[in-house]
Amino acid sequence: MQQIINFIIRNKNFLLFVLLFGIALIFTIQSHSYHKSKFVNSANFLSGGVYNSVNNVSSYFNLKTQNELLAAENKRLNELLFNTKIDTNAIVLDSTSGLNYKYTTANVIRNSYNLSDNFLLINKGINDSIHQDFGVISSLGLVGIIDNVSNNYATVISILNSKSSISVKLKKSGHIGSLTWNGNSPNIIQLTDVEKIAPVSEGDTIVTSGQSSIFPKNIPVGTVINLKLDATENFYEIDVKLFNDMTNLEHVYIIENTEKQEIEILLENTNE
């Protein structure tokens, strides 16, 4: 017993080092698996509060570009609204039926795009009924998926993250693939698992497939700029240029699929 205590006292620096280094490594490994970074994340009142007050000042610097983006979106929506063939004056019997996707607006208070696993922080949380696995889009395209949520803040796994994998399709032919990121450029993202028989060519538009129960169908993603067959020669490896500028995000929309639970229960029962 005496010797054990002596050993601990003699090597206390080394033991503390091993303990803390081990804890740090566990946190690191946890952060590399999907939805596991529970303990250390920026969705808490301290870091959320700091970023929120910084963002209150810094958001003024790009007000002009953000206003132009919002005005462009309003223009597009107005064109849709006033050119539609459906009679908008008809009495709507029940406005809530058929409302599968609920939208909430949020502001990005921290954005990162230079790491290999990027996260965003937004200023909506449990108090605004935001929960894990809700989709996040901007007016131009995909942004990411909600990861950790606190009372007033939420972290978003950006599509610029090695953990992110989102189901998308070719707009023209409907062939599906999954969207991943290789960590090189924040404008270009990779599309894999597209069958060799798919008629894909440069300039094709990529949209979300609606198969994941997170995002609705046909949210624009980007255009094909480069394609080649992978090593097995069965699937394409495609570079996609994003419509969205991930380096300049301010206003985003959070999408809640109100039927998600029903779909998930059904899938679980089917798999059993």
Binding site: A24, L25, V40, S42, L115
Partner: peptide
């Protein structure tokens, strides 16, 4: 720093290593 930048424990590991 890790908490603020959502990076797991990478800064903690590197810092404790150079400290030791």
């Amino acid at each position: 720093v890790d908490m603020f930048s959502d990076s797991g424990g990478i800064h903690a590991a590197a810092s404790v290593f150079i400290a030791y």
